[in-house]
């Protein structure tokens, strides 16, 4: 019993682990809430695009001497808006437009980072560095995440209705365009808040997996939110602690655990369906 307790308390003796755990709770919460909307809206590719597109923003923000988060946010949002604009005004399909815009921006970011001397560490940007989180990172991410989480929870019914039936949302007088752009801004902000900890590549997983797990298991939206949040918190906390004991990279381990939970959920639901079919037959 004591050793089990120590399994959890020992890592917390280190200040960097306290910060890492707090950070993982913060991003687990905000990412899982957003992931419900992302999955329901079918925006997985959009999440992928926006997260990759923040890279040139980071580099340019460093050159301009403004907070990296602001540069990342502007670049991410630019990608989403440019995709929407190009789709409306050309015959190319949305996924193709998006692919061009985000890979172009990502590549530009790589060029900038390898060319200019920045203190932006490429590996950390790509895969996160949750064990190297500073007090300041924590406060920054915490404020952005809290803001996003509150907005999403308070306005969850409007956002959910917008995902489900935008035409009906319009007919009852909801501001559909505002909801659309609001969701894009929330996406960019959520990504920015999780960037330091999870990195460009892995944040996408944190934005998709919890919602997908909730989608598989839930029959109503609030259940989906609760399941996504629980799955996300479980994997982020356990991933952080396990990575300490086994000395592995943290964010990747979290993503592996989430993928494992998703498989379990998938297996559980298809087994459930199979048994129901057998019983019926």
């Amino acid at each position: 019993m004591d050793s089990l307790l120590a399994f959890f308390t020992e890592p917390l003796a280190h200040e960097f682990m306290q910060r890492a755990l707090l950070m993982s709770v913060i991003i687990a919460s905000v990412c899982s809430i957003f992931s419900c909307f992302l999955v329901l809206k079918g925006w997985s590719l959009m999440g992928d695009a926006v997260s990759h597109a923040v890279l040139p923003g980071l580099a340019l923000a460093f050159v301009a001497g403004i907070p990296l988060a602001i540069g990342a946010f502007i670049a991410g949002l630019f990608c989403a808006l440019a995709t929407g604009y190009l789709k409306e005004n050309s015959r190319v399909k949305e996924d193709a437009v998006m692919g061009i815009v985000f890979s172009g921006m990502f590549a530009l970011g790589l060029v900038l980072i390898t060319k200019i001397e920045t203190d932006v560490h490429l590996l950390h940007v790509l895969f996160g560095n949750i064990l190297g989180i500073t007090q300041r990172d924590l406060i920054e991410a915490g404020i952005i995440a809290l803001l996003c989480a509150v907005i999403m929870l308070v306005k969850r019914k409007d956002l959910m209705l917008y995902c489900f039936d935008p035409v009906h949302a319009g007919t009852i007088g909801l501001p559909v365009r505002l909801l659309h752009f609001g969701l894009l801004i929330l996406l960019a902000l959520t990504i920015v808040s999780a960037l330091k900890a999870a990195g460009i590549i892995l944040v996408v997983a944190m934005l998709i997996a919890p919602g997908a797990i909730g989608f598989l298991l839930a029959r109503s939206f609030d259940h989906m939110l609760a399941i996504a949040l629980a799955a996300s918190l479980f994997s982020c906390i356990s991933g952080t602690i396990l990575s300490y004991h086994f000395d592995t990279a943290t964010a990747p381990l979290i993503v592996v655990i989430q993928a494992f939970l998703f498989l379990l959920a998938l297996l559980g639901t298809s087994l459930g369906t199979a048994t129901r079919t057998i019983i019926k037959a």
Binding site: L40, K157, L161, D165, L174, F215, R219, S220, F221
Partner: peptide, 20 residues
């Protein structure tokens, strides 16, 4: 035009009529 896999119950959908 409806996503029938969406996690909403019948009563949730009918309640959407009341949001306004």
């Amino acid at each position: 035009e409806v996503d029938w896999n969406f996690p909403v119950l019948v009563e949730d959908v009918v309640m959407m009529g009341r949001y306004g």
